[in-house]
């Protein structure tokens, strides 16, 4: 069974107050490595067997219309076995 992964991130120019809150919490815990943090979403979609090109095309369409808002977000689609 394969998993199709869709990762959605806010575009770089869009303010990400959640990421900023994480970035400012890290040093309070002694983690000093982070210059900045951006927070996004990850969808794991299970399909039977290897995904077909037709299925992948549908996932692209779903990522563009529902899973992300192209006005403020970008997405990446990958397959994990």
């Amino acid at each position: 069974m394969a998993k199709i992964i869709v990762e959605v991130m806010l575009k770089p120019e869009i303010l990400d107050p959640q990421g900023q809150a994480v970035a400012s919490a890290l040093p309070r815990l002694g983690f000093t490595f982070a210059k900045s943090v951006r927070q996004g979403k990850r969808f794991e979609i299970e399909v039977d067997g290897d995904p077909t090109p037709a299925q992948m095309a549908e996932v692209e369409k779903a990522a563009e219309t529902l899973l992300s808002n192209p006005v403020i977000e970008t997405y990446v689609v990958k397959v994990e076995k």
Binding site: L10, I14, L15, P17, Q18, A21, N69, V71, I72
Partner: peptide
Amino acid sequence: LPGALTRNSNL
């Protein structure tokens, strides 16, 4: 309408 509404800047 154009644009989007996102998380308040002060969370």
